[in-house]
């Protein structure tokens, strides 16, 4: 279990600064696919970080929402990484990122692509989550995606789809509050209704990240860029979630246009302040 405290996505550029002053950051998360090489600097840094802090391994390439079964060779490599570092948490996405073509074999697309929410895809995703949990020998947290389009054939609301995957497979959920805000803005959904439909007791980790906006005639199109500070409406939603659910491990993601360590640490501290308040609120409620 990760601590119910603020964490950040680990970036090699911050390594020296973190060693000097972790600034209250209580855990770190890495993308599994960046640490599947055999050795060298990535593992030297990860071993140092994992020796001092709880670690979250976050997969971006298992393509759980893909039409094909889970890539056994890739899953095996992720398993070896998890065995090596014994992370407190492993998470992946409700999305697909690889596609097999007859002429080219499997192509990895390096993006988290959306899927329709139907009984058929629900069964497929559950099957894939089972394969991952079995292959890794551990429970998975499944993350809600940021999406830009919807599928006409979708019949299950996104939070209900996630809840049902968790119910059938026993997996937990990773609630990305920025993704909720991005998808709800893009599709005209109500973010509070979305959050109310999600069983918060299944949430094992929260993600917060920055987004970019593009103005379309119908209004803003939000893009999950991970390249900016967390937006104010996302902080507000996050505070509501924490007030309701109590403190949860909360990760600030910042992958592009990387700021200096103090800027990222300040974002984590802002989450930490909300977590502390949430804990006090719960204590009063008891």
């Amino acid at each position: 279990m990760l601590p119910a405290l603020p964490g950040v996505g680990f970036k090699p550029a911050h390594f020296a600064a973190i060693r000097q002053d972790p600034a209250g950051v209580a855990f770190f998360e890495v993308h599994a696919e960046n640490y599947l090489g055999a050795g060298g600097l990535p593992h030297a840094q990860l071993a140092a970080i994992a020796g001092e802090f709880p670690l979250s391994v976050h997969g971006v390439g298992l393509s759980i929402g893909g039409a094909r079964g889970i890539d056994a060779a890739h899953l095996n490599r992720v398993r070896r990484l998890c065995d090596r570092y014994a992370p407190a948490s492993f998470s992946e996405h409700l999305a697909w990122s690889s596609h097999g073509t007859e002429t080219m074999g499997t192509a990895y697309l390096n993006d988290l692509l959306p899927l329709p929410y139907t009984e058929e895809t629900l069964a497929l995703v559950c099957d894939h989550v089972d394969q991952v949990q079995e292959g890794l020998g551990r429970r998975l947290l499944l993350e809600n995606p940021a999406t830009y389009v919807q599928f006409a054939q979708s019949v299950i609301p996104e939070p209900a789809f996630l809840a049902e995957v968790a119910r059938r497979t026993g997996c937990g959920l990773l609630l990305d509050v920025n993704n909720v805000f991005v998808s709800c803005t893009n599709h005209g959904w109500d973010p509070r209704g979305w959050l109310n439909a999600l069983p918060l007791d299944l949430v094992g980790e929260i993600h917060l990240g920055g987004h970019a906006a593009e103005d379309l005639p119908s209004g803003p199109l939000l893009i999950d860029s991970h390249g900016a500070a967390v937006a104010d409406p996302v902080w507000a939603l996050y505070a509501e979630v924490i007030a309701q659910a109590g403190p949860l491990p909360t990760l600030v993601e910042w992958d592009n246009d990387l700021p200096d360590w103090p800027v990222l640490a300040a974002e984590a501290a802002r989450a930490g302040a909300i977590l502390a308040q949430g804990g006090m609120g719960l204590a009063r409620a008891c």
Binding site: E33, L36, D71, A73, H74, R77, G105, A107, Y108, N110
Partner: peptide, 9 residues
Amino acid sequence: EPPCSPVLA
């Protein structure tokens, strides 16, 4: 020649 694995390195 698209990447055939998520390990882009």
